[in-house]
Design a protein around this nucleic acid. Structure first.
Lengths: 204, 204
DNA sequence: ACATTGAGCTTACAGCTGTACGCCAATTTA
DNA sequence: TAAATTGGCGTACAGCTGTAAGCTCAATGT
């Protein structure tokens, strides 16, 4: 095996080790370099051949998580084109992501309000992409001005994210209920934005 | 000074020390018993005379934060009775709380998705009180069924909390904009819940 | 063929952590 | 007044942490 290949392989092993150690009881902040190295099967000091410090690894994890979020969006896009309903499809797809990649979601959820400004910014950027994409669909569907669509999308993403967080602590038999409640909230949002926008235009 | 008084005093000192060490870069999880004891002016081992461990202190802090949230609600209630507008008054009052007690808000924000299930539950309980109170007002104002009011209130609280979190990283000159955006979102929510509820009844 | 590179290792150290143990001294109780 | 209680202290220890220094040795470059 080539040298570069091998290096990339252990780099992936480190990333994989870090992700696998995240859990409901263990955040990235509570991970130690030594723990990660142990899990990855390398000596503690070998860690430095790949990352300058844990922060650099953390940012890589957030990027990785962001990548998964994009894949999720692609998946949702396909479903929307088949299914038609933007809201329910988006929420359901997102909930599948949360339950299927709960540690990845937890990372985003926690670092969004974590102690590192760089982490917070990185997560915010990823979420921003997410809501921009949603705004795009809302614009297509409701033909409302860009700014309104963006504000609407941000609210929706906030609500969906929050529901995802709730799902992490809820028994699985409540997932359907959580999903439906959220769909209702988003529908209200869509209705409200549409009618309130119109009434504002009428008033003006 | 009586023994009990003195004990209560150092207990408060510990709590105060913990709160004062929280910041944008330091979460409760990254606080050490020794640091807190140092700040409180006692020996590390004396800490145990007041709390079994850091977790117990943490739960006390969350309770304390919850108390402040209740005070905030009382304040908002008074303002609403004078001012009249539930939504804008609530949002503005909340934003004042966030900027004036940012470390307290940060505690709630972070522990809401933290690594301790007990902490998460404690924070969820406090927020639940908050949204129940808001639901009460929504019911009075829009005369909608309890369940709808509750769901609506939860969405609103979610949105307001999220804006509070954003405010922590935003320059102060954007607070007004953040506040207004949120107010718009909540108005949409209220409009949507009202009209969608009606249309559902009409359909049935 | 030889020199260079670099991923990974071992060893080592200083600094921090939580907390067990036992003492002191002042308040409280009997 | 004597005894008991208890908040606070100092000492001590084991366990963890990040990381510096230097070695090995296989892949790479010339």
């Amino acid at each position: 095996m080539s040298r570069a290949q091998q290096k990339e392989r252990t780099r992936k092993a480190i990333i994989e080790a870090a992700f696998s150690q995240l859990s409901a009881d263990k955040s990235f902040a509570s991970l130690s370099l030594r723990e990660v190295a142990r899990e990855a099967g390398i000596a503690p000091t070998s860690f430095y051949r790949h990352f300058a410090d844990m922060d650099e690894l953390g940012l890589t994890l957030v990027d990785e998580a962001g990548l998964m979020l994009r894949q999720l969006m692609r998946q949702a896009r396909q479903r929307i084109e088949k299914n038609g309903s933007v809201i329910s499809t988006s929420v359901e797809t997102f909930m599948e992501f949360v339950t299927g990649n709960s540690n990845v979601f937890r990372l985003l959820l926690r670092e969004r309000s974590g102690t590192s400004a760089a982490f917070r910014a990185a997560v915010a950027r990823e979420i921003q992409h997410f809501s921009a994409e949603l705004a795009h669909y809302l614009r297509k569907e409701t033909a409302c001005p860009d700014e309104l669509a963006q504000l609407q999308a941000e609210a929706m993403v906030t609500l969906v994210f929050h529901t995802g967080a709730d799902a992490l602590d809820a028994p699985p038999d409540q997932f359907a209920s959580l999903t439906n409640r959220t769909i209702t909230q988003l529908r209200w949002m869509a209705h409200g934005a549409a009618s309130y926008g119109r009434s504002k235009i009428v008033k003006a």
